[in-house]
Nucleic acid binder design. Structure first.
Lengths: 143, 143
DNA sequence: ATATATCAGAGTAAAATACTAGGAAAAGAG
DNA sequence: CTCTTTTCCTAGTATTTTACTCTGATATAT
């Protein structure tokens, strides 16, 4: 029942892009330094975020990444799913096979668990996280 | 975010023991046949269920397994945790290290997810699952 | 040109997952 | 007392996943 580091780092990077946005592209290097994470690994994760159009990239000097949309357009669920695939607790919930298994009593447990997970991750937006972060650190550094 | 087959099978076996209880011990062989699962693998999982006192075992002929307590005494959470360990979505929630990480904004996401997961699995008892099963199959076979 | 980035794909060590295999030990049945 | 049944215990193993690293090509502002 674990979210992989890939998923965790994807969320951290999306949040970093949102918080540190100033119109310009933000480099992997600066994100890796701020978050103390492997540059090359983040690069790899970011590349799938680019492919799924969650972020836009610019190459060369002055290049880097920025969010493709407003922070309010992303949920934690969106972000995790684009990196991790389905968040369902058992594979049987995803494929349409296992027809008879679907009315077993244990299957209902996994359905309820799935609903609870989705309910949480789909209800939290990146904007919400940015706001919470700002409340914690304060706005003093904005001038 | 997956529950392993070990966890899934543990729940299936506990439910099987509850549903097919008739005072006598129930063998792994019969459970494996009913559930169409590997005998040897189930045996391994059952052994940890014995060690954690969730089930009692008897050896030799007429041996097998039975629940140590009433079905109402077990929750899905109990069972999964005894097999899978912590169900928390990220390791950081378990260890007391990562003190500074604990007031990060993403950490709150994992806390909410953790609460949602625990809330579901701890609120479903084995008794409840047995009842639901009986409603599905009906009581006609009891004579 | 050159320094700075992303982009692309391969490689890899370690851990987890999902089993399988073999034999010892206990206990009831004949 | 022996045979069969069943748990108990430990080891092995193939596959997949995880968490990265490495190398080099390509694009772009200065």
């Amino acid at each position: 029942m674990k979210v992989s580091t890939k998923g965790q780092y994807a969320l951290i990077m999306m949040l970093d892009l949102a918080i540190n946005y100033n119109g310009e592209y933000i480099t992997i290097k600066s994100i890796a330094k701020r978050q103390v994470l492997s540059e090359k690994y983040l690069e790899q994760i970011m590349s799938t975020l680019v492919k799924t159009k969650f972020v836009r990239s610019g190459r060369g000097s002055k290049g880097g990444y920025k969010l493709a949309k407003e922070p309010s357009c992303y949920t934690v669920g969106n972000i995790l799913r684009t990196i991790e695939g389905s968040l369902s607790p058992v594979a049987a919930l995803d494929d349409d096979i296992n027809v008879q298994m679907k009315d077993s009593v244990t299957f209902e447990v996994w359905e309820r668990l799935n609903d609870a997970i989705n309910n949480v991750v789909d209800s939290i937006t990146l904007e919400e996280l940015v706001d919470k972060h700002m409340q914690k650190v304060g706005y003093e550094y904005i001038i």
